[in-house]
Design a protein around this nucleic acid. Structure first.
Lengths: 154, 154
DNA sequence: CTCATTTCGACAGGTAACTTGTCCATAGCC
DNA sequence: GGCTATGGACAAGTTACCTGTCGAAATGAG
């Protein structure tokens, strides 16, 4: 007889760690758009945060951003193009390299970054309240350990 | 003077919990395709696991699957169509409802499910080895608490 | 029983966030 | 000076979703 397929609520289908990580992540992350919209940023999507995560004030090339974010330069170029269209960043020719263009945040870009950053302490506080400070710190250490353990090893 | 934009390695840009959750999740999850390919399943993508996560042996309609997976029936129908094309599931008319078709796993579908399931204990063992059993269980409890705390409350 | 509403599935089309491939101009190196 | 590497643009394809619409069948209310 072939393997029985367990029912959706069967114990052997109880959430595994990977599913738990995904669900905890997206439960929190799904609230990001809501937070940004509440502050008037309707054209800023979660994927765009990757640009600001790796941008610096002196200007950064699309290629560098792509490398830092571990994605192709074409993908990063698309994100940057969208952000440029909506006034979050500008691009200026690099004076030291005539091939390159430097991506720079505009004031609007700085504002959305600040709004996103201001949300983080709220989340941290809520999770600390839920778990307590000790387990919150442990959780962060454990997640970091997992990331390192499973990160691309080649 | 406007806000300085912190450098990519500045302390105020240290990984926050949301980023840590995402990175821990994708560090592990990125290994899934590799595992499946190693067992000869090249046409099975992570998104398709959602079908098997909510399927039962007596057959399930696309609509039910969609509801369980919190996605639209059209999206689920696409996943099911792909899996049917590649012989992982079949669809039979529901004898009790002439509108409905029941999605059923094939033997091939059962095998890929088993392969995916067999990978979970390996991951759990590796994480337990990394953190120890106590913190592993704590981690699971904490993730579950976070999921519940931040899950759609309406 | 009939009619209005809901539900199941199909079809068409659109979008976000990526990907690969190709190309050109400029830079850097021997 | 020539070879190779790099920054960026353009084109096209893919995955995993979405909305909108439709017909057929089921369901519930009168």
């Amino acid at each position: 007889m072939s393997t029985q397929f367990p029912a959706p609520d069967a114990p052997e289908r109880r959430r595994n760690l990977v599913v738990q990580l995904r669900e905890a992540y997206s439960a929190i992350n799904d609230l990001v758009p809501e937070h940004l919209v509440a502050h008037g940023f309707t054209d800023f999507r979660p994927a765009h945060s990757k640009v600001f995560e790796y941008l610096d004030d002196t200007g950064t090339t699309v290629n560098t951003l792509a490398r830092r974010a571990s994605m192709t330069k074409q993908a990063m170029a698309q994100l940057v193009a969208h952000l440029e269209d909506h006034g979050y960043v500008t691009r200026q020719p690099d004076p030291d390299d005539r091939r390159a263009k430097l991506v720079l945040p505009t004031d609007r870009g700085r504002r959305v970054f600040e709004v996103a950053q201001s949300w983080v302490p709220q989340v941290h506080a809520r999770v600390q309240g839920l778990l307590g400070s000790d387990r919150f710190e442990e959780l962060r250490r454990d997640l970091e350990a997992i990331r390192r353990e499973f990160a691309d090893q080649h």
